[in-house]
Design a protein around this nucleic acid. Structure first.
Lengths: 141, 141
DNA sequence: CTCGAATGATTGCAATTAGAATAGTTTGAG
DNA sequence: CTCAAACTATTCTAATTGCAATCATTCGAG
C-alpha cells in the first residue's frame, strides 16, 4: 500500500522533473536564438535582463549566477561594444552597466527572437496566467 | 500604447523568469540535502534518477546532461561504492548501472531528505495537480 | 556475408561557472 | 573623528560541464 505521504513525495519529484525539463527547454531556446546574433546563452541572458542600467551585482542576481561570472560576461559584451561601465552616481564602489545604442538595438532584436516559438506557446493566455500565479506562490523572491 | 503582442511577450518573459527561478531553488535544495550525505548536486541527481538499473546514456538523458558528464558522475559513485557497472544483457556495447546495497540505502535516505521542506510545499495538493497538468502540456517529452 | 553507418561509452580538451581572496569604498557604532 | 565591519567589483583558482574524437559493438542495405 502507498501512504498519503508517499504519493505526495512522488508527485513532488515528478513536478520537480517537469520544472527542470521546462527550464532546460527555455535555456536551449535562448541558446539558439542568442547564437544567431553571435552571442552565448549567458550573454543573451545578460542582455535580456538589462531592462535598465543596473549594477553588476544586480545583474548577477537576475541571472542567478555569481558576481565573478557576471564580470566575465560583462567583459565580453563590453569588448563587443554592446555595454559600457559607467561610474555609479552616489556610490563609487559600484558601476552602472549601461547598454550602448548598438547594445540596445541588439537587445530589441533578441527579445523579438525570443518571443517567437516560445516553449510556453502551447499554453493559452489564461493558462499562462494560472501558471504564473502558482509559480509566484512557490518562488522565493 | 501596448499591443496585444507586446503584453503577451512580456508575460512570456515573466513566466520564463519564474520557471528558471524555481528550477534554481530546486537545484539549491538538492545541493544542500546531497551535501549532508557527502554528495555533490550532480551525484544526488544521479542517485535520484536511478529508479532502476539503467544504461549510462539513459541516465544522462534523465539528468539532462552529456553522456561524458554521466560517465564522470558514475565514476565518482562507483569509487564511493554506491554503484557498479555491469555488462548489459543483450548489448555488449552498453553497461548497466546498478546500485549496490549501500547505494540503494543512500538513495532512500536522499529521497527522504528531498521530500522535506520541498520548494513546492507552499502549494496545496490540488494546486500541484493543476501545475503538473500545465507543465506537462508545455514540456516536450 | 560484408562493409559502411549508427550506437554506447570513454577520453581529452575547451569553455563555463562557482568559490575564495583581494582592493577600494561605504557605513555605522562609539 | 576613527576604525572595524560590510559592501562592490575584480582576480585567481578549482570544479563542473559540454563538445569532438575514438574504440568497440551492432545494425542494415545490398
Amino acid at each position: 500500500m502507498t501512504t498519503e505521504r508517499e504519493t505526495r513525495a512522488q508527485t513532488d519529484r515528478e513536478l520537480c522533473g517537469l520544472i527542470n525539463g521546462l527550464a532546460k527547454q527555455i535555456e536551449a531556446h535562448l541558446r539558439v536564438r542568442a547564437a544567431t546574433l553571435g552571442l552565448t546563452a549567458s550573454q543573451g541572458a545578460a542582455l535580456r535582463e538589462l531592462t535598465r542600467p543596473m549594477t553588476l551585482r544586480e545583474l548577477a542576481e537576475r541571472m542567478s549566477c555569481e558576481p565573478s561570472n557576471a564580470t566575465f560576461v560583462a567583459d565580453r559584451l563590453e569588448e563587443q561594444g554592446y555595454l559600457e561601465r559607467h561610474p555609479h552616481p552616489g556610490n563609487r564602489r559600484a558601476k552602472q552597466l549601461v547598454l550602448t545604442p548598438a547594445g540596445a538595438e541588439l537587445r530589441e532584436r533578441l527579445l523579438g527572437l525570443l518571443s517567437e516559438d516560445s516553449p510556453l506557446a502551447p499554453l493559452a493566455s489564461e493558462e499562462q496566467d494560472v501558471l504564473r500565479r502558482l509559480l509566484a506562490r512557490a518562488v522565493i523572491r
